[in-house]
Nucleic acid binder design. Structure first.
Length: 872
RNA sequence: GCGGACGUGGCGAAAUUGGUAGACGCGCUGGCUUUAGGUGCCAGUACCUCACGGUGUGGGAGUUCGAGUCUCCCCGUCCGCACCA
């Protein structure tokens, strides 16, 4: 055994051993208790970033820990390989997305291997492979048959210069990222998946997801947004024809306060009114400016214009003006809203801006209404009662809604309705690098699904996008086909699927990747659902909700037997780092932390920073998420080469608990490296005596008086570490390992005495605790010290309850809640004895003297609190 | 705008259920070892105070014998918002 810790060598040997033995290939053995541990698969962007390293280290620690508990653990890996960045790279350097993606996968796979993750590579998949995405297409066809997939028009961002659809990300301050042209909204036909059919089930089932963080469940529930309300109509007459303007409201109790209606710019009534109103037409045109992102729509200045049209209030019969509002969304409900300025904050502001009437119809006793200033109680449905509302006066919210809904229903003008905020999932993308939608357009037969026996519809892999629309449209060899129905010449759909489709079911495919006949098989029933899923909180809604939906569609198509894909969910925090910059005339140029030297005062407080290159000061810009734009990224590869994978893993686990953001620190990495070097040094020092005991099969524990205190400490720390492992709080597990190393390192090397026995036990515990986190060094030392062959199969160390027993315990004594003393009492001391000891403590008496004892609180095993007051 | 989180020493953090705030590590200070070192080892390190003691978990109130933890209000930071993945 080398005196020096040489991680590169240790890690190479350990990885070779695992590869040679197929250690991480998970057998499909239904008789064994399984554990499916899955980290969100990466987009193959080129290189791993620290976020990946953190994600996969967490998953790997769980995987190895569960394996040591004896479970049959599956941890697969694959590639979310379709997507926009590959097209951007193609535009930048002319390489086809397929080739770029393939190269990136090859490189990143090497990186993952170098980190020593316990991955079953025999199940690797990539979503850009036809063997994978053919099943996207196949299930899409099933959804068409069930009416879950359907076609309707949708609104997209349109770049009028490049004549292309833009992703929200490609819209910067309302302009196209490449052309700088103001982005417009444009309606195009798209395919949708009816996730709203499952809205209620997706909502209800959240209750049963005990293994999910409550905040994620809350976010999903809010996203689905179930609301009870009333859908009703304002009748109108126009051009001699009768029409109805439909709206939805959750506040039907305020219907008597309606002073106008607002419709979306795309609403038919708006279009009709604009026909002979050029000013309105111009306003509607202006509403088309800007992108479709909801955050932008919700924060724009609210603008409107009257249409000149009027509709009739369904209950009062009064005329109501119709406005066009840029804040009303066509894709939402009916694209029109009733406006009650007195009791809706947004309507209130709009009415103030445009001088529209505000009519109070709700009051809260003791509160005074003013139409000049909004107050929160105006919208308080819990405290309000109807006023100025004729027959509804005096009714509270629920009663008023019931009465009004009944009257609307009697007139045939409305009814109660449950509405969801959740919208159906538009999956059509006007992009090349994605899964083709298996549809053929025939002049005679219309849109015809591609028959199953013609799947997959294979994407040509040699296109190079140029930013002007989808290059597939120019690929005649792809587009030209014959109609599956009538045989006439026809054209293929060139839209591809949203990449969220690819990632909505990959977890199931890992279980049966080699099945060329079916999307899933009975191996899926063994492994699914995923027992532990790990990924970024940024996926809390979309990816996770789509996956829950997709799983239910698969269930209803007979492909899986579970309802939910992920039993337990861990949302890991971001990896952040300090930023440094110089400001040149308002333009910031960022310095990588590696190129900056930090200055401190003699208390260690940071006082400034200078660039290494020129020694001149740079500004400290604050902690930010690691990113290219802030140049504060740390390259995992360089760290692995310098310190070894185990050091990177130890630091990543130690620096913060998994859910919290992790702040990168170079000196923290040094600390992790130091810890492993000290561990190595300790193992070298004790190798001979410990290996001798192991070789002799001598596993007796040290029982000398000296060892008793040490074993008490050893097993106390072990107990805490096992508990923290169980709740996946790995930072304190590392801390426990460090404590153990400090404990073992304090023992004098004295072979032949109780020390060797204690070290044999202690090192055995320490190595097994550390094995999931620093697997290579644990693997190596386990063998070198003669404990056995494969530490992963050694099981978890067990707490010796006898070692934890104590004759005497220490208790804290408080006087009025303030710490005043400590006492030692026998472990079995009763309340009276403890109280007497506490009152007898000299320092405690200083604070109780001359006072009256009112109360004594004894918390067993922890403290005594004496409550005293000045003597009466 | 809507929804969700977070805030503890110079820094990352710890403190399962309300019960000794700051474990463990980084940094810093002092010492020792080394030909030397940006290595290693030892000691100290929340703040104020000579001390007794006091103060301290973003700010303010409340519940409690006792609050980092529970309740309410405020401030600040971060994440998501449906075509980034």
């Amino acid at each position: 055994m080398d005196d020096q810790y040489l991680p590169a060598q240790v890690e190479r040997e350990a990885q070779a051993s695992w590869d040679d033995n197929g250690t991480f290939q998970a057998p499909d053995e239904p008789s064994r208790e399984k554990f499916y541990c899955l980290s969100m698969f990466p987009y193959p962007s080129g290189r791993l970033h620290m976020g990946h390293v953190r994600n996969y280290t967490i998953g790997d620690v769980i995987t190895r820990f569960e394996r040591m508990r004896g479970r049959n653990v599956l941890q697969p890996m694959g590639w979310d390989a379709f997507g926009l960045p590959a097209e951007n790279a193609a535009m930048a350097n002319g390489v086809p997305p397929a080739q770029w993606t393939r190269d990136n996968i090859a490189y990143m796979k090497r990186q993952l291997r170098s980190l020593g993750f316990a991955l079953d590579w025999s199940r690797e998949l990539a979503t850009c492979h036809p063997e994978y995405y053919r099943w996207n297409q196949w299930l899409f066809l099933r959804m068409l048959e069930q009416g879950i997939a359907y076609k309707k028009s949708g609104v997209v961002n349109w770049d009028p210069v490049d004549q292309t659809v833009l992703a929200n990300e490609q819209v910067i301050d309302g302009r196209g990222w490449r052309t700088g042209a103001p982005v417009e909204k444009r309606e195009i036909p798209m395919y949708y998946l009816a996730i709203t059919r499952y809205a209620d089930e997706l909502l209800e089932a959240l209750d049963g997801l005990d293994g999910w963080p409550p905040q994620v469940k809350t976010m999903q529930a809010n996203w689905i947004g179930k609301s009870h309300g009333v859908r009703f109509a304002f009748p109108y007459e126009l051009d001699g024809e009768e029409g109805r303007l439909w709206v939805f409201t959750t506040r039907a109790d305020t219907i008597m306060g309606v002073t106008f209606c607002a419709v979306a710019a795309e609403h038919p009534l708006a279009a009709r009114a604009a026909r002979d109103n050029p000013e309105l037409a111009a306003f509607i045109e202006a509403c088309k400016q800007g992108g479709v992102a909801e955050a932008d729509l919700a924060t724009i200045e609210k603008k409107g214009m009257p249409t000149g049209l009027q509709v009739t209030h369904p209950l009062t019969g009064e005329p109501v003006d119709v406005w066009v509002g840029n804040y009303v969304l066509m894709g939402y409900g009916d694209g029109a809203v009733m406006a009650v300025p007195a009791h809706d904050e947004r309507d209130f502001e709009f009415a103030l801006t445009y001088g529209l009437p505000i009519r109070q119809v709700i009051e809260v006793p003791g509160e005074a209404f003013s139409d000049q200033a909004w107050q929160p109680w105006y919208a308080d449905k819990a405290r309000g009662f109807c006023v100025n509302s004729g027959k509804y006066d005096g009714l509270a919210y629920l009663d008023a809604v019931d009465a009004i809904a009944a009257d609307l229903a009697a007139k045939g003008l409305g009814e109660k309705r449950i509405q969801y905020r959740l919208r159906d999932w538009g999956i059509s993308r006007q992009r090349y690098w994605g899964c083709p939608i298996p549809i053929v357009h025939c002049d005679a037969c219309g849109d015809v699904p591609v028959p199953d026996d013609q799947l997959p519809v294979v994407l040509p892999d040699d296109c190079v996008p140029d930013g002007h629309g989808n290059p597939l449209n120019r690929r005649e060899d792809f587009v030209a086909t014959t109609c599956p129905s009538c045989g006439a010449p026809a054209r293929r759909e060139t839209d591809t699927m949203d990449t969220f489709v690819d990632s909505s079911w990959y977890y199931a495919r890992y279980c049966c990747r080699d099945n060329t006949e079916a999307m899933t098989d009975d191996r899926v029933d063994y492994w699914m659902p995923v027992d532990q899923y790990i990924g970024g909180i940024e996926h809390a809604i979309l990816h996770l909700l789509y996956s829950r939906f997709w799983t239910r569609v698969m269930r209803d198509t007979g492909l899986v037997s579970c309802d939910e894909p992920f039993t337990n969910l861990l949302t890991q925090g971001m990896v952040v780092a300090e930023t440094y910059y110089r400001d040149d005339a308002g333009k910031k140029s960022f310095f990588n932390p590696a190129d900056v030297e930090v200055q401190r005062d003699d208390k260690g407080k940071i006082t400034g920073a200078v660039a290494r290159a020129d020694g001149l000061p740079v500004e400290i810009g604050g902690i930010e998420k690691m990113s290219k734009s802030k140049n504060n990224g740390v390259d995992p590869q360089a760290l692995v080469e310098r310190y070894g994978a185990d050091t990177v893993r130890v630091f990543t686990m130690f620096a913060a608990p998994p859910e919290q953001s992790l702040e990168w620190s170079d000196s923290g990495v040094e600390g992790a490296s130091r810890f492993l070097k000290r561990l190595w040094g300790l193992a070298v020092a004790w190798q001979a005596p410990v290996a001798a005991l192991n070789a002799a099969g001598d596993v007796a524990v040290a029982d000398a008086t000296d060892a008793r205190a040490l074993r008490h400490e050893l097993h106390g720390v072990l107990q805490q570490a096992l508990n923290d492992y169980g709740r996946y709080q790995f930072n304190t597990v590392v801390s426990a390992c460090m404590k153990l190393l400090n404990l073992l390192g304090g023992v004098e090397v004295n072979p032949g005495a109780w020390q060797a026995r204690f070290l044999r036990e202690g090192l055995g515990i320490l190595l097994r605790l550390l094995a999931p986190i620093a697997p290579h060094v644990a693997h190596h030392l386990w063998r070198e010290l003669g404990y056995g062959e494969e530490i992963l199969d050694a099981g978890l160390p067990e707490v010796d309850a006898a070692a934890l027993e104590r004759d005497e315990i220490e208790l804290v004594v408080q006087v009025n809640g303030k710490l005043r003393g400590q006492i030692r009492v026998p472990a079995q001391a009763d309340r009276a004895a403890i109280e007497a000891a506490a009152r007898g403590d000299a320092n405690v008496q200083r604070f109780t003297e001359g006072k009256t004892l009112r109360k004594v609180i004894v918390v067993p095993g922890r403290l005594v609190n004496l409550v005293v007051t000045d003597a009466a």
